[in-house]
Design a binder for these strands. Structure first.
Length: 890
RNA sequence: GCGACCAUAGCUCAGGUGGGAGAGCGCUACCUUGACAUGGUAGAGGUCAGAGGUUCGAUCCCUCUUGGUCGCACCA
């Protein structure tokens, strides 16, 4: 078989991705297996995507990171479990199905009734809900699909009920009339966290309120004149001289002509507006508090859909916008509108529906999070749970240090129904919470009972996910799923936007239940934006589709790009050109293997004898060792950028550009012993390389592994991750090699500056006073020939006179001369040499200045002084070399 | 308004505890080199936003200024 047919010239990722995913999945390689008793189990949770979700770059990034960690730990021998899941996403899903039914059947959810409607959602979920999960296979996710958990499954439902009932019985969950955020589109309460403030252009309206039994009028500024129908007071600051005499009197609300008290309240700021405030406790958070302090009446002027109700007779039935317009007109008619000035201000919008949030007073269920938040703050302060990068603590604390009651009830049909029951018997009216599906009142045994119709906030069940995915609270299921092994999990990987919604809630709820944080670390990754840093959105048309990228460049290229872009940064500006670049890298790896593959036939799988290693082999093994250390350490602290760059640099520069090039001569020689030895080392290195790369680029590495592995070896996915090897440290060979590389590069540089053709062989003279280095160079003469096209060379010490009519370059240790047979533009070269000189001079001056400063010698640590002295010596030598050479040209 | 974060090469970014400025992409010159043109070789390019301070020494620590991002609060 030819090389070409077995290993194509260009790696084609799409040919192998499906094959290997299937092999891993069907071979049960994603299941947790204890391979090394000394390693702790390692578990991770997939942030459950919405049932309605579509795969986007955010998922691709999140899953790339999760999968890197999973594969890395699995290869290290930890019993590794990545748990996948999915969120029922109450509001989003209900809205989607509602829309679908309306389009297809022209019916509303009320036409169907609750039971039928919920059944429709389940039907929809079964049909479309798995779509995104199938897409995750394309990303290479190595999660254990047997653990897949949907937040509405029986298990999570049990967890939700158990937690609710416990908190209810503890008094932490309670029902209360309170001012809450009302979404008029969804017709449901939403939590504070779900409100986004957006800047809106509105007006400042100045109104007149008549003081009763007086000629005096009060000027009041407002942005919402329509709420005057709900006014139950006018407030001034208690210390405001201007209005002191009016406190206790009555004001008359325009249009509805209701008398309301003029009260004093410290909330009113004398400096702001007119110093007078209309108080609408039913529709403003601050006014609600004022109302409570002053025992004011609450008037609700809104219907559930946001239209005005009978309490605002003059504008009844209108929506808020219309009502505002009409109110202003009426005020004009009665000449109580003084002025209208444009004003921009922040208005709360529902994150879910986008509509303006209306504060209304309503009976809702709340969870008192005060104590739980305090504990979850402590957990982070004690480093029981650590944020990476650490800065995100601030965001977490800013929420958790000001806990407010969490409004957990939603007036929806899709979700976990609140497990509270009411007895309808007038003589009983018992209310209780229960995990069971109750059929009769435990007190009066009446069957006339009802369950609370509301459902719970989606985040209530997501918050319990770390526990419910492992079977909590069902003892048998917990045993079965290995709760004790896998809880708490190792790390949570997610975006900053849900630090409060999800991270904080999991922390609170899990700490409450288990007295432990649900994960040890939280890694907050970046947000993927387009190449100009603009958020991807359908309307802007700048969305990159992961599946498209995979099709064009392969999954490995996408994963590597995302990983190398992912450190402690906030944004990833994803440029398709970058993905292409790393696709090229994948291809480079492929071709490097393609080159060495034919030579590996007789390679001894047991490797090599350390005593017989060639100095180049020692060098590459030393470098490989350093990379292994660096990559491992970087992944442990979630610096995927460092890990990727480290491997990239090693594979591309060290391995391909130098080691393979240096190996060509040996591989094509007749020396069978050296050839075998080199093949052994190449094979060893490449095995290590694909192992190092596998967590990041699983497909291409598994494919290559298929050609590399011995018959008794398993798939790459469960091979042991490389570890730093004490016996493979060769510092000296590494130092020599660095100098060799420096000299070869200098020769190439010289050739380039005077346009010597790549094929032309040249003569080179090296001058160095370092004897052992001279010996090393002598030993390497064949390699100079191959890599720098040197046909003949001499190595002398610096006491020997330098050749005339030559071009030269100097390093700190070696002078490189190339004699020339005329025809060269010397002026050009002299200019370059002068440039070299000025650079060398600058280098020298910098360190020389330090050494001439007695305070530096006095104060700086000895090792620093020594280092600078050595540098000075090298720079001096280099400078002298260039200066002497220049003199020869003058 | 309160708070946090950021400013390093043309672009995107990396630079634990102060001690000779880095990467990828892009750019320039040359090269049909038997692994790879998705390639090779060699380069150019930076007052580390500005001003002050601490220090023998500051991209790094402190203060201020300017410019930017984000979070929270604010519907008088």
């Amino acid at each position: 078989m030819t090389l070409e047919s077995q290993l194509p010239k260009t790696f084609n990722p799409n040919d192998v991705e499906e094959k290997w995913y299937k092999a891993w999945d069907e071979g049960k390689y994603f299941k947790p297996v204890q391979r090394n008793k000394n390693k702790k189990p390692y578990s991770l949770l997939m942030p459950p995507p919405n049932v309605t979700g579509r795969l986007h770059m955010g998922h691709a990034l999140n899953h790339t990171i999760l999968d890197i960690l999973t594969r890395f730990k699995r290869m290290q021998g930890h019993e590794t479990l990545w748990i996948p899941g999915q969120d029922h996403a109450g509001i989003a899903t209900q809205a989607k199905v509602e829309q679908k039914i309306f389009q297809e059947q022209g019916k509303t959810k009320h036409d169907l009734g609750r039971e039928k409607f919920v059944a429709e959602i389940w039907k929809w979920k079964e049909e479309y809900g798995n779509h995104i999960m199938e897409q995750f296979h394309k990303l290479g996710d190595s999660c254990d699909w047997d653990y897949f958990t949907f937040t509405m499954d029986e298990g999570p439902n049990l967890a939700v009920k158990k937690f609710f009932v416990d908190m209810y019985n503890e008094g932490l969950i309670y029902q209360s009339d309170y001012i809450i955020n009302w979404d008029t589109t969804l017709q449901s309460a939403i939590s504070d966290a779900e409100v986004e403030h957006k800047e809106v252009n509105g007006n400042f309206y100045h109104l007149h309120y008549q003081v009763k039994d007086s000629n005096q009028v009060l000027e009041i500024a407002t942005t919402r004149p329509e709420t005057l129908f709900g006014d139950t007071a006018v407030a001034v600051n208690p210390n405001d001289d201007r209005f002191e005499h009016l406190i206790g009197k009555k004001a008359i609300v325009p249009i509805c002509n209701r008398e309301v008290p003029i009260i004093a309240d410290k909330h009113v700021d004398m400096e702001v507006g007119t110093g007078c405030l209309k108080v609408t406790p039913g529709h403003d958070f601050n006014d609600y508090e004022i109302g409570k302090r002053n025992e004011l009446e609450i008037i609700n002027i809104l219907n559930k859909d946001g239209s005005l109700n009978e309490n605002a007779k003059a504008v009844e039935g209108l929506n808020i916008k219309e009502a505002r317009k009409k109110t202003v007109e009426l005020l004009k008619e009665t000449q109580q509108l003084i002025s209208t000035k444009p004003h921009t201000h922040q208005v709360g919008h529902s994150q879910r529906s986008g509509s303006v949030v209306e504060p209304i007073v309503s009976k809702q269920w709340f969870l008192n999070t005060e104590k739980m938040a305090e504990i979850s703050v402590q957990a982070v302060e004690n480093e029981d749970m650590k944020f990476f990068p650490k800065g995100w603590e601030n965001t977490y604390f800013s929420y958790q240090k000001n806990p407010r009651p969490w409004c957990i009830s939603r007036q929806l049909w899709w979700g976990h129904q609140i497990p509270v029951f009411y007895c309808s018997e007038d003589s009983c009216l018992h209310t209780w919470a229960s995990e069971e599906a109750e059929t009769q009142c435990p007190k009066c045994h009446s069957k006339n009972i009802q369950q609370d119709p509301d459902v719970l906030d989606t985040w209530f069940s997501s918050g319990l996910f770390p526990l419910s995915t492992l079977g909590w609270p069902n003892k048998e299921k917990m045993q079965e799923s290995g709760f004790d092994k896998f809880y708490p999990s190792a790390v949570l990987v997610t975006g900053f936007d849900i630090i409060f919604f999800w991270v904080a809630r999991m922390m609170m709820m899990s700490n409450k239940i288990t007295n432990q944080s649900p994960f040890q670390d939280t890694y907050i990754h970046a947000i993927v934006r387009d190449k100009d840093g603009v958020k991807m959105s359908k309307s802007l048309g700048n969305v990159l589709d992961p599946l498209e990228i995979i099709k064009e460049n392969g999954c490995d290229a996408m994963r590597f790009t995302l990983a190398v872009s992912s450190g402690y940064n906030r944004n990833i500006n994803l440029d398709p050109a970058k993905i292409e670049g790393y696709r090229n890298f994948i291809n480079k790896v492929w071709n490097a293997f393609r080159f060495i593959h034919p030579y590996l036939e007789n390679a001894n799988d047991k490797g090599f004898e350390i005593s017989e290693l060639h100095h180049h082999e020692k060098w590459i093994l030393n470098e490989l060792n350093l990379v292994i250390k660096d990559v491992t350490e970087s992944i442990e602290i979630y610096r995927f950028d460092d890990a990727c760059n480290s491997i990239y640099q090693f594979v591309y520069e060290k391995f391909c550009s130098w080691f393979i090039e240096l190996s060509k001569g040996i591989l094509n020689s007749e020396n069978e012993h050296l050839k075998i030895q080199r093949a052994n080392v190449l094979k060893y290195c490449f095995k290590q390389i694909v192992k190092l790369l596998h967590p990041i680029t699983p497909f291409v590495t598994e494919e290559i592994w298929g050609f590399l592995k011995s018959e008794d070896e398993e798939l790459l996915i469960i091979q042991e991750y490389p570890v730093f090897d004490e016996t493979l440290q060769f510092k000296e060979d590494s130092d020599y090699m660095d100098k060799f590389i420096e000299v070869v590069t200098s020769i190439r540089n010289l050739r380039n500056t005077v346009m010597i053709k790549p094929k032309d062989e040249i003569e080179v003279r090296l001058f160095t006073d370092n004897e052992s280095l001279a010996k090393y160079f002598y030993k390497s003469r064949g390699f100079f020939k191959e890599l720098a096209k040197v046909k003949a060379g001499k190595i002398k010490d610096k006491s020997i006179e330098r050749p005339q009519k030559s071009i030269m370059r100097a390093t700190g240790h070696t002078e490189i001369f190339i004699p020339l047979e005329g025809i060269i533009d010397l002026k050009l070269f002299v200019k370059k040499l002068e440039n070299d000189k000025s650079k060398a001079q600058k280098e020298f001056d910098k360190v020389d200045k330090k050494l001439k400063n007695p305070k530096f010698i006095e104060n700086a640590p000895i090792d620093v002084v020594e280092k600078v002295k050595e540098e000075a010596k090298e720079f001096q030598e280099k400078l002298d070399s260039i200066t002497n050479s220049l003199n020869n040209f003058q």
